[in-house]
Structure formats: C-alpha cells, structure tokens
C-alpha cells in the first residue's frame, strides 16, 4: 500500500458543542483509489467528522491533510478547488435550474469562469455536462427542472456535480439515504465503478450495511465521537465491540426481562 499516495490524513480531530464531545481524537488516512466507509449509530459524530473534512466547520483541535496540504480550517470552496467532490446527506442542488445547468454551473466554476458576464452559460461546457450526466445515467433528464426530480434522481445528479471538478477524493455523506433499496445498490455500484476506473478515493458514511460491506475496502467505526474499530470488512464484522454497539449488549432486554414482562 505504501506506493499508493495518501489522499487524506486526519490526526487527532476533536470537536465539542458545549459539553457534548461530538468528535474525540479521531485519526485515520485514506489512499488513492480506496473506498473507505465511516459507520456508526446515530449521533456517533459521522456528519460532524465529514463537515470538518469538507471545511464547513472548524475542528476544536487536530489536523486535516488533503493531498499533502494542511487544510485545517480552510473554506469548503478552497477544499473543492484542491479536487474534492462532496455530496450531502440531504441533497443540495439548484432547484430553479435544469439538471444540465446544475452540472454546467459546477463545470463553469471548475474552469474559473464565474465572473464572465457576457458568455451564454447555457452553451458553455454542454458536451462535458452531457458526458457527466451520461455517466450517472441521467441523459434523459437533462432539460427537466431540478425542483421536480424524484429524490433518488437528485442523489445521482449530486454525484454528477461532485465529479465535475475531476476530483481525486469524493466525500459522500449518506449517499443512499432516502432512496429505494434497488436504487441504493445501483448508485453505490456506479460510484464504486467510477472510483475504481478513475482511481478516486471515496470516503462515505452509510447506515445500509449491505451497501457498506459490498463496496468498502476498509471500514471505520465511530461511536460517541471516538473511533472504536478499523479494518477490512471481515475484521469489523467480527469485532465484538462493534456488535455490541449495533445489536446492544443484551443487558437490558435479556431473556429474564422478557419473561418478567410477559408474566
């Protein structure tokens, strides 16, 4: 693995809200072309972790290095310019634009033409936008207003937007949340295929374990803000601590209690 460059490395990340320690001393790294899943129960600190990596919130302490550069506390837009694509837990797209225009805006930004005031934007980077939409299977939707799309389609559109700056790293916060089961599997297979073809590193959080275990090369398990397990899927699956978190330790609702309740 050592020959493959490290895309992302995180050291001692900490974030507290008042007395709540949302993230506690989290460290990990991610290699090019690797698909890394960040899992954990609700409230484990996954989204906080994500938002720190993406630059949306500043960490209390710790360092984030992206592509060999210290990006701790930098703005999301600066991090995007380094080659990081992002999808959100709740989709964020431009509702009053067409699907194609959504991708075009990202492309125009990637080509640093945002302050161009005379060119016709609907004609810019049209082919490139079509290609990206083709990649996620949304060619047929190009002229539809984004505000009338189904949720699953919005998730695919977000992936197309995230790929617009030819990212080296994709950060996907619950990429399949709110989707139908078949759509979930399709979207993640698509993501995994693109990632492997273009050697993009992917960090994603997810609650659907089928998705996680099918695609992740490695899994990080977060609980109450702290990293409690890390390894290939099989290791994590066997880890007793992980099982305890997900299934409970049987201390409360054990057999004796059930009998007591029915009696």
């Amino acid at each position: 693995m050592s020959a493959v460059p490290i895309l992302l490395s995180v050291e001692g990340l900490t974030k507290s809200y008042g007395g709540v320690h949302a993230v506690r001393d989290v460290s990990f790294s991610l290699h090019a072309g690797e698909i890394l899943a960040l899992i954990g129960p609700n409230g484990a600190g996954k989204s906080t972790c994500f938002n720190i990596l993406n630059g949306q919130i500043a960490p209390g302490s710790g360092r984030v290095r992206l592509l060999g550069r210290d990006t701790t506390g930098e703005k999301p837009r600066a991090i995007w310019r380094l080659g990081v694509g992002r999808t959100f837990q709740i989709t964020a797209t431009f509702a009053t634009m067409t699907v194609r225009e959504n991708v075009q805006v990202a492309l125009v930004s990637h080509h640093s033409r945002l302050f161009n005031m005379w060119a016709s934007a609907p004609k810019l980077a049209r082919d490139e936008a079509e290609r990206l939409l083709g990649l996620v299977g949304m060619n047929g939707f190009a002229d539809r207003p984004c505000g009338e799309l189904a949720y699953g389609d919005l998730k695919r559109l977000e992936l197309a937007i995230a790929l617009a700056n030819q990212p080296k790293l994709l950060l996907m916060d619950e990429p399949t949340a709110g989707m139908a089961p078949r759509e979930r599997i399709e979207l993640m297979r698509l993501t995994a295929r693109i990632a492997r073809e273009q050697s993009i590193g992917v960090l994603f959080t997810e609650h659907d374990m089928d998705v996680v275990f099918e695609h992740a090369d490695r899994i990080l398990v977060l609980n109450r803000g702290a990293l409690i397990a890390e390894g290939v899927p099989e290791e994590v699956r066997r880890n007793p601590q992980v099982r305890a978190i997900y299934l409970g330790e049987g201390l409360v609702y054990d057999a004796r209690h059930r009998e007591g309740a029915s009696a």
Binding site: F88, E101, W118, A119
Partner: peptide, 27 residues
Amino acid sequence: IMVFSPFGYALRATRDSALRSEAIGID
C-alpha cells in the same frame, strides 16, 4: 445578458443553495 452569463448562473446558484454553491467553489 448577465442573467444568462456564467456570473448570472453563479448568482442564482448562490440564491438557490448556498451550501451547494460553496461546495462547488463559488465564493
């Protein structure tokens, strides 16, 4: 012309979703 220029789109993008526009490099 400005409304349909890249600048106009960036402006509308910021209006529609500040989160997304920031995440695609728009100040």
